[in-house]
Simulated assay, not measured.
Amino acid sequence: MASNVFGNPVTNDTVRLVFPNMTQITARDRARVALQFMNADDKARNVSRFVHNLKAAYGTGTSTLGMIYNATGGNLTFVLNHTWEGAVWRSPYAQVIQNGQWAGFLHVRGRLMGPSKEAIVYRGVNNDGAGRDWMLAWNTSRMNYQNRVLAEIRTAGGFLSANWNAIDGKMDNQANNHSTTALGGFASVSIGAGSSPEFVAIMSLDDLGSNFMAMASDVSVVSESLDSKYVDDVDEADEEAPAE
């Protein structure tokens, strides 16, 4: 398991522990159990601790403490990232996130007054086995500007020739949380206020039932508040980013 991936995967065997009489197990069943197990063995707390340790090592400066969860019922594989400004720092995006696992990263500004602004795309399948790409985007600004997020789901390969200017325009019209259901998939993204907030994304499937869909939008399992907890919210602390 990569050092920035947390938790044991939720498999058919896990589902049978919860529903011992279930005979035919689908991706939706694995997704539901993954949502129930979002903090099993403290994995949500562990990914939070990981990204905050990265931030402590990085120091002051605009940054995004990213935590993403796979509750799609199958593996998610990293496809691409699109950078508007900034870069992932020290620990790269997880290449594979299994169902029921968290992955963490720290994305940082590229210039003194610049934002942390990027999109990442992961590929999996829906309940019918059709390939789908989940896109998660964030724009973390310095100081007191509105941080924004966006999520989209397309068919596999749908972001390879994406109009990123148009996606940026859509994100400008969003606020600090957004959810979408499309093509058998579901995604929820949330970000806190301030210049180094937490960003939480949950990727899942549609039609799981109201209780499970509520879980797929609940970030409290990770943090009571996603708002920045760092002194780089203050002008005097906003110094040049450290070299890696």
Rank of each mutant, 00 (worst) to 15 (best):
1 M>I: 08
4 N>V: 11
4 N>P: 02
5 V>F: 05
6 F>M: 11
9 P>W: 04
9 P>T: 11
10 V>T: 13
10 V>E: 03
12 N>A: 07
13 D>F: 14
14 T>I: 05
15 V>Q: 02
18 V>M: 05
21 N>M: 04
23 T>E: 05
25 I>W: 01
25 I>F: 02
26 T>N: 03
27 A>V: 00
29 D>W: 00
31 A>F: 06
32 R>I: 13
32 R>P: 02
44 A>S: 12
45 R>S: 12
48 S>R: 14
48 S>H: 05
48 S>L: 08
49 R>W: 00
49 R>S: 09
51 V>L: 10
54 L>I: 06
58 Y>E: 09
59 G>Q: 06
61 G>V: 02
62 T>I: 03
65 L>I: 14
67 M>P: 02
68 I>A: 12
68 I>L: 09
69 Y>K: 09
69 Y>A: 07
71 A>D: 00
73 G>I: 12
76 L>C: 03
79 V>S: 10
79 V>I: 13
80 L>I: 07
82 H>M: 04
84 W>K: 05
84 W>P: 10
85 E>R: 05
95 Q>H: 11
100 G>N: 00
100 G>Y: 06
102 W>K: 08
106 L>D: 09
106 L>T: 07
108 V>W: 15
108 V>Q: 06
110 G>W: 07
110 G>A: 08
113 M>A: 15
115 P>W: 00
115 P>M: 02
124 G>S: 08
126 N>M: 04
128 D>Q: 15
128 D>G: 11
129 G>K: 06
131 G>Q: 06
131 G>M: 02
137 A>I: 08
138 W>G: 07
138 W>C: 09
139 N>K: 11
141 S>K: 12
142 R>D: 09
142 R>V: 12
145 Y>P: 06
147 N>S: 12
148 R>H: 09
150 L>D: 01
152 E>R: 15
153 I>H: 07
155 T>W: 08
161 S>T: 09
162 A>D: 12
162 A>G: 06
163 N>M: 03
164 W>I: 07
164 W>A: 02
164 W>T: 06
166 A>I: 13
168 D>N: 03
174 Q>D: 08
175 A>G: 13
175 A>E: 03
181 T>L: 14
181 T>I: 14
181 T>P: 00
183 L>R: 14
183 L>F: 15
186 F>A: 09
187 A>G: 01
187 A>Q: 15
188 S>W: 10
190 S>M: 10
191 I>Y: 00
192 G>R: 05
193 A>R: 10
195 S>Y: 08
195 S>P: 14
197 P>D: 00
197 P>G: 03
202 I>W: 00
203 M>N: 08
205 L>H: 04
207 D>P: 02
207 D>C: 04
209 G>Y: 06
212 F>A: 03
214 A>T: 14
215 M>T: 01
217 S>F: 01
218 D>N: 15
219 V>D: 13
221 V>L: 05
222 V>N: 00
222 V>P: 01
226 L>M: 14
227 D>T: 04
228 S>Y: 05
229 K>Q: 08
231 V>A: 12
234 V>H: 11
236 E>R: 10
239 E>I: 05
239 E>L: 03
243 A>S: 09
244 E>Q: 09
244 E>T: 10
244 E>I: 10
